[in-house]
Structures are given as structure tokens and as C-alpha cells.
Amino acid sequence: MPTSRPAAAEAAAGQAVGASAPARGRPPRGRLTPYLFLAPALAVYGAFLLYPLARAVQFSFYDYDGLSVGTPVGLANYAAVLTDEGLRDAFGHALVLIGFFSLLPLLIGLVLAALLVRARVRGLPLFRTVVFLPQVIAMVVVAVAWRRIYAPDGTLNELLRAVGLDGLTRTWLGDYATALPAVGVIGTWYSTGLVTVLLMAGMARVPPELYEAASLDGAGPARQLRAITLPAVRPEIAVALTLTIIAALKTFDLVYVTTGGGPGTSTTVPSYEVYRRAFELGEVGAAAAVGVVLTVLVFGINLLVNRVADRQR
């Protein structure tokens, strides 16, 4: 009997030959061995991730204030998530932020990476470091700094006034029209470095001869990008999108520090609603439901991204 034979097939074979089979099978502890190796990691993972996750799912079926005994309410919390206009807005804002956190950085990153990889710039490590720097800074620090930049007499407005564009100055974070894009731009600034560095790694793998051959065949830079670069960096694009979409959907600190969801409700996001419900309003059950929906959404979108990336490979 080949040792590599699948366990299921083995079991089927065992059933087929009847009661004498176990004597010939491998000792049972052999099958447990992999799980023994897994156990320590699984225990930690289970205690700190799976168990809390399961509890959160459980809480989401209760009307629970974190203090007294919860009462089961079935799917009412989820129904509220779907019908609550404020929450729907919050999820809408999160989707807009994906544009700023993921898509825009991807476009900018493609151009930047192509330039940095192909145009043998002097001081490349320096550029790479500078572009990546926002990732190293804590988000709260980033948010505080940008709040200063966007302030009525902040850097951005002073810059505009200095070049005579007084008409364009506004209170970026306090204006209903500009608050969400203003927060989004911070996300773009934050994500672009990560995306660029990821894409550069992918592009560096492409042999230069390919580009040479393509240009000999008369392909311009745009054609080269579409025909050679893009297919080559598809896995990196998938990783970049996954990471940045997660960052966009779980945005909390950025909004908490810059606008607190305002003006009005124009920059509310789901994670902020989870916090607000659980810690400010004492609606732990409802908060858990929002959290679960957000988790499912994050999973869903990323599954989609990875499916698409896989299929086209």
C-alpha cells in the first residue's frame, strides 16, 4: 500500500475488506500527529481570534448593553443594520474610501513604479524610502498632521493664498462637500507608498529583454505597460488591492481623529459606528452586528478580488 494514498480512499478500502482491515492500517495516532503539531498555534489562534469572533457573532443575536443579561432578539440587529439610514451612509462612505485607498493609489503606484524601475534614477533607495514612509508612521500621527494641513489657516489654504487662488480656500474638513474627499486623500497619501513598493518588486522580475523586444516590434510605452507590465504584476496588484481595501474598510483612527464623522454625518464609517455603539451608546449587540456585517463585507470583496486575479492568470 503506497503511503501517499489519500486517507479517504484508505478508509473506503478498509470498509470494503471488512473487520480485518484495521490490523493492516496505519496506527491511529499517525493521523493525529499533524494536529498535535498544529495544536499550540491553534490554541492561541482559537483563544484570541476564533473564540472572540464566535462570541461577537453570538452577541449580535442579542439585545445586550454590556451590563445586564442580554435578551435574544434573533436577526433584529441585522435587520436594523440594513434599514438604518445612518449606517447605510456609513457603508457608502467606506465604499467611496476604497476609491481613495485602493484604486487611486493603484493608478499612481503603477506610474510611479514604472518610472522608478525603468528610468534608472540615481538615489533609487532614497525615493523608495520616501514613498514608503507614510506606512511607517502611526495613523493617528498622520491624521493629526493632516488635520493641521486642512485647518482654516493651515498649510493647504496658505499655499493656495500664496499662489493667488484665494477663491479655492475652504475649511476642508468642515465643509459638507469636501470633508469625505479630504479624508480620502489622506488615505491615498498613506497607501500609495505600499502599493508602489509592491508593484516595483513585481516589475523588477520582468526581464528587460522583453521590453527591448517589444520596442523593436514598435510597441510604445503604453502598449508595453498593457501587454507586458500589467500581466506580470497581476499577483502584486491582487495583494495591493487586498491590503488597501481592508485598510479602507476598517478605517477608524483616521476618521476618529480628523472629523469624528462630521460635519453632520458626512464622514461616518462602519468601524466608527461599531465603536460608538459599543462604547458610547452601550449597544453591544448592535455593535457586534455591524462588526460582523463589516467582516463579511471585507471577506466578500477580497474574495472577489482574488478570484478575479486567479482566474485571469
Binding site: 464566535a54 453570538q58 443575536f61 442579542y62 445586550y64 448593553d65 443579561v69 442580554g70 435578551t71
Partner: peptide, 10 residues
């Protein structure tokens, strides 16, 4: 687990 575990807070 979610459905049978005792109610939160109890």
C-alpha cells in the same frame, strides 16, 4: 456555540 452558549452578561 453561538446559539447554545449562555446569554451574554449572565
Amino acid at each position: 456555540l453561538a446559539l447554545t452558549a449562555c446569554a451574554p452578561g449572565s
